[in-house]
């Protein structure tokens, strides 16, 4: 039978090894979007289409 001190040491080592796998903990950040990314929502995409949309609004909504 293993002595008590050896058993405790073995348990401590195993516990430390198990806890080492818990380093990548995801923390919940309230108010931050959690879904998948949207390429068309970026500033570059918005900037690229802004002029077209402005021109379209003037064309579509101005009285003829």
């Amino acid at each position: 039978m293993m002595p008590k001190r050896t058993t405790l040491c073995a348990v401590a080592v195993v516990t430390l090894m198990l806890l080492a796998g818990c380093s990548d903990v995801t923390m919940y950040e309230p108010g931050v979007y959690k879904g998948s990314g949207d390429d068309t929502a970026s500033e570059e995409a918005a900037e690229a289409r802004a002029d077209d949309l402005r021109e379209r609004a003037r064309t579509a909504h101005t009285d003829r």
């Binding site: 108010g31 931050v32 979007y33 959690k34 879904g35 068309t40």
Partner: peptide, 23 residues
């Protein structure tokens, strides 16, 4: 977006409020 418990709303750079139906 302020009250969503799973934060599924986002706003595009040109101010359009959209949401993720998977969430």
């Amino acid at each position: 977006a302020a009250v969503c418990p799973v934060d599924c709303f986002y706003t595009t750079a040109d101010g359009i409020v959209l949401h993720d139906k998977d969430l």
